[in-house]
Design a protein around this nucleic acid. Structure first.
Ligand SMILES: [Mn+2]
Ligand SMILES: [Mn+2]
Ligand SMILES: [Mn+2]
Ligand SMILES: [Mn+2]
Lengths: 231, 231
DNA sequence: CCTACCAATTAGGTATACCTAAATTAGAGA
DNA sequence: TCTCTAATTTAGGTATACCTAATTGGTAGG
């Protein structure tokens, strides 16, 4: 077959491990502990150890695992993880743009479908959407070649000095938080004025030059990433 | 929860059994043999017996199985089977209409995705497509309530007397045959002139009033359903 | 009425992907 | 250096959904 890849005989389960390792490893791609993987995947640590041993042993070694030393993606594993992330984010964009899903609903559907769409499906929705670079949460969509651009952003919850920011992205992990976030008008790309409330552990935010301010708890503020515009 | 159904905890495998029983049972919903199921699903007969015993035993009895007596769908099983068929055909229509898939490619993708889309996804693509009643192969799409209209049609391969017909539907089972069929211009709804070739075991067909005639082997002719217009 | 024969079933596997409970280990702090 | 604890691993399950081989059953023809 041509220089491309063959459909990757990965199971849904394996894909989920790879994606979790990618995410938890962060920008530096550091080694990930069994415990953190277990928490993220909501699977018992013993099961995670088991799976990783199988993954690093057989197949095309998707993963570099060491006894008591955590895991890291191999080049092949990283390639596959980014492919799944691309699927996920393209599907989310598609659901949002074409099928008019509410933002809080796209993640759950994408989380399932990302494992089952073909390369053709991926290619067709990408084309339909005009090859988008970011998804509706503000996350970068990896390119077909597995490149993903990273922006320099911080958590709203980590703001110390009040100021004006641009909204980078919102987390898709918690439906309830996301609804609250949307209710404030927080949308990737918009401008946000942030004031840290000294009394309670919360943030007062307003969009653009609007005077309407909303209060966000620290927990919710952890689900918003922003970039400082001016101090 | 409201009067509706809960997401049906069926696995992909169970759904496939139900769909196969529905199809093989035909319009009369007759009992289906283990052997025919095994062939259709490409699973060993022993495995089919096993699965059916589990299905008829536990859960909400999706199936009426009797030792040495074949199977039949229960009302609940029929409901679920039609739901999956609705998914399948809506997805096919969507891939064809919205994502510009070639006709021969829609089936394989739908065959996978039908098990994983949510009710919301089903509803959204149905709305997007204007609640279509037939899929691109000419097959009826069951309604949300599980009603499916049946047309009175025959196989092209069963034609004895030459004549003019309307094309009812084409089978989605064989990609290769489907490509041949499409190449003749055979499309559901079009008019077809059929002449049985006495010499070889084949059919000479032409579309509408076109004089261009194509030869279809009996094997391919089995994948085309037609309705007689005039003798 | 009795056999074959074929369909169906039973018996006894395998692989995947989980689980809980019981070791074991690495590393931090005394 | 020793000890303790939390992380990790090992051991020994479960459920699903397949498989092959061996057995049983129904029935059509002789
Ligand atoms: Mn998501
Ligand atoms: Mn996203
Ligand atoms: Mn189909
Ligand atoms: Mn179809």
């Amino acid at each position: 077959m041509s220089p491309g890849k063959q459909a990757s005989a990965n199971t849904e389960s394996v894909d989920n491990y790879l994606k979790a390792i990618l995410t938890l490893g962060g920008r530096e791609e550091s080694r990930v502990t069994i415990k953190s993987l277990a928490e993220r995947l909501r699977i018992a640590p013993a099961s995670v150890t088991n799976m990783l041993q199988k993954l690093s042993g057989s197949t095309a070694t998707l993963v570099d695992y060491e006894r008591h030393g955590g895991v890291q993606l191999s080049p092949a594993g990283k390639r596959r993880a980014l492919e799944v992330v691309r699927h996920h984010r393209l599907i989310e964009t598609f659901l949002y743009e074409v099928l008019d899903y509410p933002l809080e609903e796209v993640h759950e559907e994408a989380e399932r479908l990302e494992h089952f769409i073909s390369e053709r499906f991926e290619e067709r929705i990408a084309a339909k959407l005009g090859h988008p670079k970011i998804d509706p949460h503000g996350h970068s969509i990896p390119s077909m070649e597995g490149e993903m651009t990273a922006r320099e952003s911080m958590l709203l919850a980590d703001v110390i000095e009040d100021g004006i920011f641009v909204i980078d992205s919102v987390s898709d992990q918690d439906t309830h938080n996301l609804r609250l976030i949307e209710a404030c008008g927080i949308t990737p790309g918009a401008r946000l004025r942030v004031r840290k409330n000294s009394s309670s552990d919360s943030y007062s935010v307003s969009i653009g030059r609007s005077s309407k301010a909303y209060d966000l708890s620290r927990e919710v503020a952890r689900d918003v990433r922003i970039i400082r515009l001016k101090g």
